[in-house]
Design a protein around this nucleic acid. Structure first.
Lengths: 119, 119
DNA sequence: GCAGATACTTACCAAATAGTCTGTACTAGA
DNA sequence: TCTAGTACAGACTATTTGGTAAGTATCTGC
């Protein structure tokens, strides 16, 4: 495969942020470096495994940087790179949209789970 | 469950656009109503099943409208609702980011598939 | 009559994704 | 000594997601 021909920029974004929690991780790091435990609390419902897996992938993709303080017990922080910060910037409008339409979306989600129990 | 408490707006967006092809569908409909066949050609690599399934879900969520011309052979078009158009608007910056960083992203994706063959 | 096109639906299967649980190495504190 | 906390790794399982291939109904054109 190795198909790197994106039809539109959106596909490029999805190639980086594809993964249930990645947008949230990038968003929360936009407000400054965070420790693993902090992120686990901020990104609600994420399991430790998925958090670390996604952090690893985002680090490999150059979106964020892993800073190891080389102490015992371990102290590790994650911070956005310039690349990651530019991504966080374009994520902001999306976040605003969500905040603005939060009531509508809540109703939609509720209706969905309602229909699911019907079937 | 029925947890409708979003920590940030981003989660609301993801609740609507979660699905491999949904952002692409919304993006392509931003330039006007399209027939099913057109969308299948625009959203590259999507299978007919997934396209239709996602269109159905997006219609149920009020993002787009299904317009059936009641003809035989069938002629159906899909167009964004006001809600959907507002979503498409905030998707635009993301798309721009992708277009701007397309070379970097292409390299990242290429490196990933390279490492995959190593293992 | 038969292929081809339209917009789907359904059944079945594969793969990606996510979750749970256990384990590691080390320290601090009771 | 026992427990808790740190940041992870790995095995195993479950769920979600996506893909393939077939079938439906009806019309047009050959």
């Amino acid at each position: 495969m190795t198909e790197t021909n994106f039809q539109c920029g959106l596909e490029a974004v999805l190639a980086i942020l594809g993964g249930k929690w990645k947008p949230l991780i990038v968003y929360h790091l936009a407000s400054g470096p965070k420790r693993t435990g902090q992120l686990r609390r901020l990104v609600t419902n994420v399991s430790e495994k998925m958090l670390i897996q996604h952090l690893k992938e985002l680090a490999e993709d150059g979106v964020l940087r892993r800073v190891d303080f080389q102490t015992v017990p371990p102290h590790v922080e994650y911070e956005l790179t310039g690349f990651g910060r530019s991504l966080a910037d374009v994520l902001a409008p999306l976040c605003q949209w969500g905040t603005l339409h939060i009531a509508e979306v809540a109703m939609i989600v509720q209706r969905r789970s309602h229909e699911a129990t019907m079937a």
